[in-house]
Simulated scan of single mutants.
Amino acid sequence: MGARANYVLVRDGDWRLHYSHWGASGIDAQLLDGPGSAGRFIAAQREVPRDDWLDERWCEGAALVDHDARELLFFTWHLEDWVHRRALFTVLGRTWPGWRVRWAYGGLEDFAAYVGVDAALVRSDRATTAPEPPETSELQPIEPGSEEVALAVTVADGGGDGVRAYAVFADDLEDLLDRGPELAGQLSPAALTDRIPTIPQGGVHLDSVHRRVCGWTLEHVAGAARATALPRWPGWEWTFWADRYEEHERAAAGALRFDRPALGPGAALLAERLEQYGERDPVADFARVTQRLAEEDERGTLEVSPWTQAHTRTSPLPEERARLRAALADLAAR
């Protein structure tokens, strides 16, 4: 149980690695008040040795604050949809003025590269084992009302139908890419579409005529974010579009469009998360749960890891919160 996070704080030419057992679910709330507040929060978390990173399997989020270069790098598994993500980046643009704010598409490997440590420190065991055979099952069409978790796939094969577009359910972008060129034959006719009424989680464009595959995501794709070629796609050109869904629309040549939701509701969502993850103490919440379970445990076998204590709540300065409130009010008016 937990939402494990790593943090890196860079200052005066040196860096320190920190850990929170509960922090990943609230990384957006921890960053919203700006670099001063975020730096104090990270410094308050448990410092760990520089080689004691989480790995990609256990780390649900991470943030790096470099006060020297004025750079913020982060990712989290816990953003709800495109509105949440875009609202967050919009507000960070106001509360981190003069800073470069980046999403870590490569996950923890981006952090390792930033501070110059061996990427093996953040890779899970699966990265060193033989890859499993690619999935061959037919991809299921997305259910109506669940389009925000869809993945869009477009196929240009030179046929008479032009570009075909699909909205499918899959684990993530890596799930699609791991299927290789056979992906085109694993798309159900029931998933055909020409419009997705939101911005989905990501997408892939296959151009079999020019042997080109392109992808984008609102999440992260580990090594594929920096790769120039993909192991399942020999002889194909790979292009990573980051979160630029507009590139996919252009490549689809009118066969697919996404409806861009209004950003205004994202202000209320961020305000709710500030209260949920910025004001509450997850250590105290967990202690109350374990106390109740201990009282119900007649055999006295309940054991609680000391790592569940590894999270320290901090508070922003009044002027930092005032600046954030102003940014949220402006966003709500959109």
Rank of each mutant, 00 (worst) to 15 (best):
A190Y: 05
V168I: 10
D194E: 12
G160Y: 03
S124K: 10
P189T: 02
V122K: 12
T129R: 15
R212V: 06
T129F: 00
P144R: 07
Q140T: 14
L187H: 14
E138Y: 00
T129A: 11
A224L: 03
T217E: 09
S137Q: 08
R123H: 14
I196T: 03
E182I: 01
D171N: 10
V213M: 11
I199Y: 03
Q201R: 12
Q186M: 12
L151K: 04
V163M: 02
P181T: 04
T198S: 04
Q140M: 11
Y166M: 08
L187T: 11
L176W: 09
T193W: 02
L218I: 00
L176V: 08
D118K: 13
V168D: 06
C214A: 13
S188H: 09
G185T: 04
P197T: 02
G202F: 01
C214D: 11
L177V: 07
L173Q: 07
G180N: 12
S124Q: 10
V213A: 13
P197S: 04
L151Q: 12
Q140P: 04
L173W: 01
D194W: 01
L218G: 05
D171E: 11
T198F: 01
A191M: 06
T198L: 01
G185A: 11
E135N: 10
V163Y: 02
D161Q: 15
W216G: 02
A152D: 10
E138P: 00
S188T: 12
V204C: 09
V209D: 13
H210P: 00
T128I: 01
V122Y: 10
D125S: 13
P133G: 05
P131H: 09
P197E: 08
S124Y: 06
R123I: 07
R123P: 13
A127Y: 08
V155H: 10
D157I: 02
A184M: 03
A152I: 06
A130K: 14
